[in-house]
């Protein structure tokens, strides 16, 4: 029962149904990549998983039901959603940002060291308000915040959007390394299909609120 299992997931905004019975699975330590046209329901799918959007169907993580719980409870069960538009607290410093939601305070210094191993850039900006970072740095910070909570499952909504090509490469290598070393499960929504598929164990194509195509590949 370990891993994430989604079956028959339906969601709507008012009268407009966005998801019509989505089935998907993410196995232990796997990365699943969601691709598909704009408006297909990828973002809504992530929102439904993290509790931001009310949905029906069955979602279990390691056998524990997720649907019907509030976002904060789902986060406490180890599902971290890094949305497209945020994930950082602008007026708080980088250090404070990382402190919010991190594991207990005793390990914080060691946790920071661990995180800088993946995202060395953040180290230089620790006492700067997050709102003053560049867009790419804020993205790193948002993902870094999530990592400090040592999540079971990380939901990343277009992590590469708006990044400079070099930053893209750095971020993707980091994501890949984290998955390999920590075994964190991930669902990544990404338009850079080619880049994303290089690190994916599974990929799903979402079209008009359904899974249109599933590809699995073996771990490298």
């Amino acid at each position: 029962m370990s891993g994430l299992r989604v079956s028959g997931l339906r969601a709507e905004y008012g009268a407009a149904r966005v998801l019509h019975g989505v089935d998907l699975e993410v196995g232990e330590a796997e990365i699943a990549v969601l691709t598909g046209p704009n408006g297909a329901g990828k973002t809504t799918l992530l929102r439904a998983l993290s509790g931001l959007v009310r949905a029906r169907g069955t979602v279990t993580l390691d056998g524990v039901r997720l649907l019907g719980r509030r976002p904060e409870e789902i986060a406490r069960l180890g599902v971290w959603h890094v949305t497209q538009e945020g994930g950082t607290f602008a007026p708080l410093t980088v250090r404070e940002n990382l402190r919010v939601g991190a594991r207990s305070g005793r390990h914080f210094a060691a946790d920071l060291e661990w995180l800088f191993g993946y995202f060395p850039v953040l180290q230089a900006h620790l006492s700067q308000p997050a709102g003053t970072l560049s867009g790419g740095e804020q993205r790193l910070l948002a993902i870094g915040r999530a990592l400090l909570a040592r999540p079971r499952l990380l939901l990343l909504d277009e992590p590469l959007r708006g990044l400079a090509p070099r930053a893209e490469g750095v971020l993707f290598q980091a994501i890949h390394a984290i998955n390999r070393h920590e075994g964190t499960m991930m669902i990544i929504v990404e338009h850079h299909v080619a880049t994303a598929l290089r690190i994916a164990h599974r990929s799903y194509v979402v079209e008009s609120g359904k899974i249109a195509d599933l590809r699995t590949r073996w771990r490298w």
């Binding site: 904060e72 986060a75 607290f89 007026p91 708080l92 404070e96 402190r99 919010v100």
Partner: peptide, 24 residues
Amino acid sequence: TGLGLVMRAVAADPRTARLSGIRV
């Protein structure tokens, strides 16, 4: 304090706070 930090986080962005497991 830690409590103060959580309060400032909620004041800054309730949704992100919620997604960070804070009982907003």
